[in-house]
Design a binder for these strands. Structure first.
Length: 474
RNA sequence: GCUCCCAUCGUCUAGCGGUCUAGGACGUGGCCCUCUCAAGGCCAAAACACGGGUUCGAUUCCCGUUGGGAGCGCCA
């Protein structure tokens, strides 16, 4: 068994796309699983569309996901010499030839062939002309055998391939001297000793031509594994319309990399009934054979659920680190993480599907001044509750120690003294008084976390509010 | 249009000829718990695209049909 070497080869023409991220993940997982190497190669030969900023964004996305590589980033643009040398070799050996046909001419002949109901591949007009480099503006075409099959055993799709005649002599060097993508990838993969090419299924149909290049170069092709594309809702192409398409967007929305990774690995791949895969699970269990051959939809609801799972299980210190920026953004100023915030965060884990939501629920603790939600105040801060609330205020003012069980006892006392007031009738007004909303963790825990001084002050504020608004009960 | 690929609940999937009254997860609905919201527990609805074969027996194998996807560049 030769050693495994995979590569992830994105074009730096945007952010890290969800589909690319999964391809990167599969390459990473396969390499790690087999103790192999992962090479990061940036395919930046399209100068028009490529940008350093985009390359940085892709690296940043991989980094966030925890997908690390062993070599690179290598840039395809810096390997131009190697590509040119390969073409010269091919030319010298007669495995490629110069072609003077212009795009217009080709277009013309192609249209004519199709009009006659024929299939078009390059008709070989220049194939045997033996044109030299002084033949004027020309491209270089790969000379394909007249017969024979260009096949391979795909690790996902199984036996695949096409007859050479179906493909025809295709261009490997443009008239401006630039090597074409197919030539460049093959040369790069060869030079870098790639053993397994794991890439999107959109390349499945390109592979026969690349196999032809390997053969012309008298080299053994690597193993290929084409992984089906991720599609959006309705099976349509993934687009911004159907949700987020870049991993950075998920990060800024408060998703954890663990969740995104778990989500991606389960799209088109499975291991029995297992749903939760942490990094170690992936490295220990990943395999190419179970990958499906059909494209799959990415379900945002599943990501929510996974994210919730990881929010519930992440070690506290780790969670705090991830949450911190979200808290500061929600609060609107720098916030120092205190023990009470940490305590609250533990109470919030069951209640938050993402970090944005969690920070919002923690807001009442991190800000000095709360504002009542209109609807909550209207429903729960009514004049009728004033006597009980005042009584509670007095009870709490003298409460010591200030903790959940003593708070509960105080509530019970007040309840009993006001006509066996249902707990909800007392708890909800207090909840609005201290959080401004009708939703929070258990009221005793919430008060405990907020502390005696701030809780009392907020209840006093609510009493003042009650007197001000004079909102009668129903 | 041509070539190739794919097809199990709404979604992701398990299944590799009998164990399938087709399993799990997410989502959805209901009930329980309950100071709110969650979490948790229990229950429910929900799929083998269609038609032919092969076989004693097909979700599983073969062929069509339909539906989806990819490729058909001097893009990557």
């Amino acid at each position: 068994m030769t050693s495994v070497c995979t590569r992830f080869a994105p074009s730096p023409t945007g952010f890290l796309h969800l589909g690319s991220a999964r391809t990167a993940l599969f390459n990473w997982a396969y390499a790690r699983r087999h103790g192999g190497r992962l090479i990061l190669r940036v395919e930046d030969t399209d100068r028009e569309r490529s940008s350093p900023a985009s390359e940085a964004a892709i690296l940043d996305g991989l980094d966030w996901l925890g997908i690390d590589w062993d070599e690179g980033p290598l840039r395809q643009s810096e390997r131009r010499d190697r590509h040119e040398a390969a073409i010269e070799t091919l030319l010298a050996k007669g495995r490629a030839y110069r072609c003077r046909c212009t795009p217009a001419e080709i277009e013309d002949r192609k249209a004519r062939a199709i009009a006659q109901g024929e299939k078009w591949t390059y008709d070989g007009r220049c194939r045997d002309l033996d044109l030299g480099q002084d033949c004027g503006s020309h491209t270089v075409r790969l000379r394909l055998p007249k017969s024979g099959h260009l096949g391979w055993d795909d690790l996902v799709f199984g036996e695949s391939g096409q007859d050479a005649v179906e493909i025809g002599d295709r261009i490997i060097r443009r008239s401006n001297g630039n090597p074409l993508y197919h030539l460049a990838v093959v040369v790069d993969d060869l030079d870098m000793g790639i053993s397994h090419v794991i890439r999107g299924a959109d390349h499945h149909a390109n592979t026969p031509f690349q196999i032809a290049i390997y053969r012309a170069l008298e080299s053994e092709p690597p193993k290929f594994a084409h992984v089906p594309l991720i599609v959006g809702p309705g099976g349509k192409k993934l687009s911004k319309r159907g949700g987020s398409v870049s991993v950075q967007e998920y990060r800024s929305q408060g998703f954890l990399p663990e969740a995104v990774l778990n989500w991606l690995v389960r799209i088109g791949w499975s291991h029995g009934d297992q749903e939760i895969f942490d990094r170690e699970d992936i490295v220990g269990l990943f395999d190419l054979a179970p990958i499906h051959r059909s494209s799959a939809q990415a379900d945002p609801a599943k990501l929510d659920s996974l994210n919730h799972h990881y929010i519930k299980t992440l070690p506290r210190a780790e969670l705090m680190t991830r949450l911190h920026p979200f808290i500061e953004s929600e609060t609107g100023c720098p916030v120092e993480l205190t023990p009470s915030i940490e305590e609250l965060v533990d109470l919030l884990r069951d209640r938050s599907r993402n970090l944005t939501e969690m920070a919002r629920l923690a807001r009442f603790l991190t800000v000095e001044k709360i504002v009542y939600e209109e609807k909550a105040a209207r429903k729960h801060l009514r004049t009728e509750i004033e006597p009980a609330l005042r009584d509670l205020y007095e009870q709490l003012s003298n409460l010591d120690p200030w903790q959940a069980d003593t708070l509960e006892a105080a509530f019970e006392t007040v309840r009993a003294r006001h006509g066996d007031l249902p707990m909800g009738k007392l708890a909800q007004p207090v909840r609005v008084a201290i959080t401004g909303t009708a939703v929070s963790p258990g009221i005793f825990e919430t008060l405990a976390v907020l502390g005696k001084r701030r809780s009392a002050a907020r209840i006093a504020d609510a009493l003042a509010y009650l007197r001000r608004t004079q909102r009668p009960g129903v």
